[in-house]
C-alpha cells in the first residue's frame, strides 16, 4: 500500500496548494512570522531561545495543526473521506496519506526557520537530537490534535474557530516554558514541552546531561500525543453527522 499513501499524499498536496486560504495559512504565515521574529527580536541567548521556540511553534500550529484539521474536516464535509473508505486501502492508510503533506510541510518549514534564525545570528544548536525530537514529536502531537479537533469541527470554516484553544495552548505554553525555565507546570501545557526541548537544544554542555534534563519534556510530549490520539480515536468521524 506504499503507492497508495504516496498517491493520496500527492493528491492532497495539490489540493493544499489549490486552496488559497489553506496555502497562505500553511505556508506564508509561519514563514513571515518566523522571519520577522528572527530579524527583529534576537540578541541574548534567552531571546534566541524564545525566537526559535516560537518559530517552531508557528510552524507546528499553522503548517501542521491547522492544515491537518482543515484538510480532514473539508474532505469529510465533501463526503470524500467516505468515498476513500469505500476504496481498497485501509482507512489508516487513507488518513496517513491525507495527513502526510502537512507533516512534510511542517518539517521542511521548521528546517527553513532554524536556518533563517542561524543566518540571522542565532547560536547553532548544540544538541541537534533534542531539536529533532522537539520538531518531530511536536508534529506528531499536532497531527493527532488536528484529528481530534476535526472530530468536533463540522465545516472547514469552523476550523478557524475550533483550532483557537489549541493554538493558545501552544503559544502560551511555549512562552511560559522559555521564560520560567525548568518550570514543570509549564511543560504540562502542550506548547511548553516543545519550547523546553528547543531551548535545551541550544545550550552547550554534556550531551547525556542535556538529554537527561529533557526527559520530563519528552515524557509530556508523549503524553500529549497519546491524549490527542485517544480523543481522535474515540470521536473521529468519517462522515458528516446526518
Amino acid at each position: 500500500m506504499g503507492s497508495a499513501i504516496w498517491a493520496l499524499a500527492t493528491a492532497e498536496t495539490k489540493l493544499l496548494l489549490r486552496n488559497k486560504t489553506v496555502a497562505v495559512t500553511a505556508i506564508l504565515v509561519p514563514l513571515l512570522l518566523g522571519f520577522f521574529m528572527a530579524t527583529g527580536i534576537g540578541g541574548s541567548a534567552r531571546m534566541w531561545a524564545l525566537v526559535l521556540s516560537m518559530q517552531v511553534l508557528f510552524v507546528l500550529a499553522f503548517a501542521v495543526y491547522f492544515t491537518a484539521t482543515a484538510a480532514v474536516t473539508s474532505r469529510r464535509e465533501d463526503l470524500y473521506l467516505k468515498r476513500l473508505c469505500s476504496a481498497e486501502p485501509h482507512p489508516a492508510v487513507v488518513l496517513a496519506g491525507t495527513l502526510l503533506p502537512a507533516v512534510v510541510l511542517g518539517l521542511l518549514q521548521a528546517t527553513a526557520m532554524i536556518a533563517i534564525a542561524v543566518l540571522a545570528g542565532a547560536p547553532v544548536p548544540g544538541n541537534v537530537v533534542l531539536l529533532i525530537v522537539a520538531v518531530v514529536g511536536g508534529a506528531a502531537m499536532c497531527v493527532a490534535a488536528g484529528l481530534a479537533t476535526s472530530a468536533y469541527t463540522a465545516t472547514s470554516e469552523q476550523a478557524q474557530i475550533t483550532t483557537m484553544p489549541f493554538f493558545l495552548a501552544l503559544f502560551v505554553g511555549g512562552i511560559w516554558a522559555v521564560n520560567a525555565q525548568d518550570s514543570l507546570p509549564a511543560l504540562l501545557v502542550p506548547g511548553g514541552a516543545v519550547a523546553d526541548l528547543v531551548r535545551r537544544s541550544l545550550t552547550e554542555g554534556n550531551w547525556f546531561t542535556q538529554v537527561a534534563g529533557a526527559l520530563p519534556a519528552i515524557g509530556m510530549l508523549l503524553v500529549w500525543v497519546v491524549i490527542a490520539g485517544l480523543v481522535a480515536r474515540r470521536w473521529f468521524r468519517w462522515e458528516p453527522r446526518s
Binding site: A11, L15, R75, D78, Y80, K82, R83, S86, A87
Partner: peptide, 13 residues
C-alpha cells in the same frame, strides 16, 4: 467495487 449512493470528490482535482 463500490458505488455509494452519496459520496463526494475532491473538487479541486
Amino acid at each position: 467495487g463500490i458505488m455509494l449512493q452519496h459520496s463526494g470528490f475532491a473538487g479541486d482535482l
